[in-house]
Design a protein around this nucleic acid. Sequence first.
DNA 1: GAGCTTCGACCGACCAGTTGGTAGACCTTG
DNA 2: CAAGGTCTACCAACTGGTCGGTCGAAGCTC
Lengths: 195, 195
Amino acid sequence: MVSDTSERILDAAERLMVSRGYNAFSYADISAELGVGKATIHHHFPTKADLAAAVLARYRRNNRRSVEGLFAAVSDPVARLEAYVGYWEDCITKGDTPFCIGALLASEIPALPDIVVAQVRGHFADLSSWLGAAIEDGVAKGRLKAAKGSRTAAETLMATVHGAMLAARVAGSDPTVFSAIARPALDQLQGAGKA
Amino acid sequence: MVSDTSERILDAAERLMVSRGYNAFSYADISAELGVGKATIHHHFPTKADLAAAVLARYRRNNRRSVEGLFAAVSDPVARLEAYVGYWEDCITKGDTPFCIGALLASEIPALPDIVVAQVRGHFADLSSWLGAAIEDGVAKGRLKAAKGSRTAAETLMATVHGAMLAARVAGSDPTVFSAIARPALDQLQGAGKA
DNA sequence: GAGCTTCGACCGACCAGTTGGTAGACCTTG
DNA sequence: CAAGGTCTACCAACTGGTCGGTCGAAGCTC
């Protein structure tokens, strides 16, 4: 392969950012974890802002790829949304990536460099766009209901899932807390009444 | 009065924490903003963790007082929940305190000192407890519906509101984004069908 | 009341350690 | 040799925190 160092740096940075956010990790942390010089990191990512933006960019790229695969593989709208929630249930259960970087960094926006903020905004746009599309499709197929429009339904689902991550983290990264909040939000998008 | 310096320090710290979180503000920031020596801050709050914990403690105290007043003044369950959402609409619109400190710090939990984490947990407990009580009362009075139980309904409302704050911050502290997500969550707690 | 002590509030100067970032040498590998 | 990658060594600025000390108000004793 060409050079996996920059990829390994991104991995470490992503891990650190997921647990600590932007302002609470340092080049020294990555350097220690990887056994690589700080200068090497600067060689690949000149500034910390560049590094964080690159992490976000790769994260978004991977998400986009997953979503496209999901849309192709699964046609049932309900199953699509369940895959979204289920993905995070897995992440929290396994313990790696117990939080969405985009959501985490969003709360820090006033303390973030511009390039990073742009990526965060982009992530929210990505997410709400595909969630909106999935819901709209579900409504068209008569499998989902969105009284206030698919756009609002998407934003609401996204918000509830993000809030559920927060609640889970407060409870010590407890996946059952996440599910207890996120699953009903899914149910509610199908007929409100009963199963 | 006795000494308002420590109160002014708490004010400044709270403002900084609301916009930057725990790890992105420093004693020097407060010192500069207040024109007071760094040593003075340490005199009132020995460590940064003490300071942050004190900010949270005061925040919770104020909340508790407000909630008690609200419960006494307003008996309609729907109006109570509307007051909660309306409070944050105002905060975001006015621009001061455009985010709940508890929720903001929750995302940073892995990078927070223990005393601070304890306060964050406490805040979540406070909030979900009174929200749960308000919803339970509403169900008893036949004004609200909570199919999965009032506990879950409270956690879900809380999560959605927190997620709505996040979305609003991403949109540049836009109160309409917040309302578009939070208001429907309120509606849904009343009969799901129609008005 | 004068003189003394005690105390909390406050401050400038300082501390060791860390921050993000740089300069230049060295080693590969083509 | 040229170029990319990595290293050690370094930098100024800043981090949370400590030190010794000043100030003034309050309390005490004569």
